[in-house]
Simulated assay, not measured.
Amino acid sequence: MEDGSTSGDVPPGPWGLSIQYDDAVDLPAPTVRPVNPVLPDTVTMLEHAPSGGRVYIVGTVHLGEKSQEDVAATIRTVKPDSVMLELCTERLDILTVDEDEARRALSPLSELNRKHFHILAQQLGVAQAFRVFWALKQSGQHAKNLGISGSDMRTAFREAANLPNCTVLLGDRPQSITHQRTYGALTLWEYIRHLWIAVRDLCVHWNISQDDVEKLKTSAFLEADAARMSAACPTVQRAIVHERDVVMAEGLKWFLAQPVMTTEGPRSRVMVGVVGMAHVAGIQRAWNRPSLSQNEQKNLFTIPPTAKWRERAPVVVKVSWLLLCGYITSRGGRFLANLVR
């Protein structure tokens, strides 16, 4: 067994943020911590040789009850000094969502119809309205069947609050940067393929059940899905999955390198990381590689130039629409002229 002790504040990492619970000092500190804890099979333990610390990564899906149970069991058993979440400062509101209220609010979205689509199209344009419309409908359907996305993160946040001086850390890249690195550099062909895959997946996973959610966590499914996305949309897969794997692995290494200060001196840090199951294998691959240089870290947060076709697309759409209207008017005029004759 391992002696427990009180941890101090952890300074924010290169892309992380620490959240310290002021009321946690009133709780009793753990006296022991298991060396070889019995944990759910969704947990992967990684050791950080330079510091002697270790992290227990819980692979989750962001919907459903089983992942919540795995997260809660792991944190209660390990009693970590810090908990790292697959979140960024732009998504902090996920942690404070009232799930019952949100479920009542989102469930009616599954009933959106053509009238609502037309309203969105007038406000956003047809292409953007299409994506938003189906995303809203799917969110409503999932809210009815499974609950609100992010339940695993909220569970980790609550469990960490119940531990003395446990610090919550945000280890993901800002969502806005990921979005711009994903879609800003897509070629026209990649954009079309990505849109097609997104629509197809919406149809396949429309009425997903809890059993279906658990199947998404299997290694066979994850490997097949990663291979499919890498072949169809390598830019999307690289920005949304591979780059964020590296960001979170580097963040975990940085956090583990910060020792816990105790009355008996510094000791190695023990952490729990809560990430989507699709990121676990990539974090493992990045774990044993040399740490990134400052330039390599900077590159992961650099927004690439926007693809030229996206700058020209609005003009092309408008010109195409005018040409189509002109063609229809011309054909209609000829038809009327023939009728008059």
Rank of each mutant, 00 (worst) to 15 (best):
N162K: 15
L163S: 13
L163V: 13
C166G: 05
T167C: 13
T167E: 10
V168P: 13
L169N: 12
L170N: 04
L170T: 04
G171I: 05
G171Y: 04
G171W: 02
D172Q: 05
R173E: 04
P174F: 07
P174G: 05
P174L: 07
S176F: 06
S176N: 07
T178R: 00
H179M: 15
H179A: 13
H179F: 13
Q180I: 01
Q180M: 06
R181L: 02
R181C: 01
T182P: 08
T182K: 02
Y183G: 06
G184T: 07
G184L: 05
G184H: 01
A185L: 10
A185W: 04
A185F: 02
L186D: 04
T187K: 00
L188A: 09
L188V: 00
L188D: 01
W189D: 12
W189N: 09
E190N: 01
Y191Q: 14
I192K: 07
I192R: 08
I192Y: 01
R193W: 03
R193P: 01
R193K: 10
R193M: 07
H194F: 03
L195C: 13
W196F: 04
W196L: 08
I197P: 00
I197L: 09
V199A: 15
R200G: 12
R200A: 15
R200I: 07
D201N: 15
D201L: 13
D201G: 08
D201C: 09
L202S: 10
C203M: 15
N207D: 15
S209H: 09
S209Q: 09
D211V: 11
D211C: 08
D212G: 12
D212M: 06
D212T: 07
V213E: 06
V213C: 14
V213T: 11
E214D: 15
E214S: 08
E214L: 11
K215N: 14
K215H: 12
K215D: 15
L216G: 08
K217M: 12
K217A: 13
K217F: 01
T218V: 00
S219N: 12
S219C: 07
S219T: 11
A220N: 11
A220D: 15
A220S: 13
L222R: 15
L222M: 09
A224T: 03
A224C: 07
A224R: 13
D225H: 14
A226C: 05
A226G: 08
A226Q: 14
A227P: 00
A227C: 02
A227N: 03
A227I: 02
R228T: 02
S230I: 00
S230F: 01
S230C: 04
A232R: 12
A232Y: 00
A232W: 04
A232G: 03
C233H: 11
C233N: 11
C233L: 05
P234S: 01
P234R: 00
T235G: 05
V236I: 06
V236Y: 06
Q237I: 00
R238P: 12
A239S: 03
V241F: 10
V241Y: 06
H242R: 08
R244S: 00
D245W: 02
V246R: 04
V246G: 03
V247R: 01
V247N: 06
V247C: 10
V247A: 04
M248I: 05
M248K: 08
M248W: 01
M248V: 02
M248S: 02
M248Q: 04
A249I: 08
A249M: 09
A249E: 11
A249L: 06
E250W: 08
E250T: 01
